[in-house]
């Protein structure tokens, strides 16, 4: 095995996903930016909203696993060793974190818009 190379990985992911790769990157960047924006504007995390986002995030984690099973035409009963469970954990984790951040940002933006309407 030779060393991993970023240009190679990028090329492989482009072949894998086509334009969707950039849509996903955009979604991730926009989601994080919106989350940070909400965080700064509100001066901290809102506990209630965070809990709601995390609950949605857990569902997002399972959704990531379902999508993965679908695209690989396989299921998690196929896990055969520790690295498989690690992979399943990583996929679930990405789904949880991604969905939580997005959900928190969206709820925060919606709350801000409602607030500004009330003021107006």
């Amino acid at each position: 095995m030779k060393d991993l190379d970023f240009a190679t990985l990028l090329s492989v992911f482009q072949e894998m996903m086509g334009p969707l790769l950039w849509l996903l990157v955009l979604l991730a960047v926009a989601g994080i930016a919106a989350f940070l924006f909400v965080l700064v504007r509100e001066g901290g995390l809102k506990g209630g909203r965070l809990v709601r986002s995390e609950l949605i995030g857990v569902a997002g984690g399972f959704m990531a696993l379902v999508i993965m099973a679908w695209v690989t035409v396989s299921g998690f009963t196929d896990a055969g060793g520790p690295v498989d469970w690690l992979l399943i954990g990583i996929i679930w984790g990405i789904g949880v974190v991604g969905t939580t951040i997005l959900a928190y940002a969206v709820m925060g933006l919606v709350a801000m818009m409602r607030g500004s309407k009330r003021i107006a």
């Binding site: 999508i67 992979l87 996929i91």
Partner: peptide
């Protein structure tokens, strides 16, 4: 196309390059 959604991180870990 959908494979990117859940799978990107996984494939990264598993790719011979």
């Amino acid at each position: 196309d959908l494979l990117k959604l859940g799978a990107a991180g996984a494939a990264l870990a598993a790719l011979p390059a």
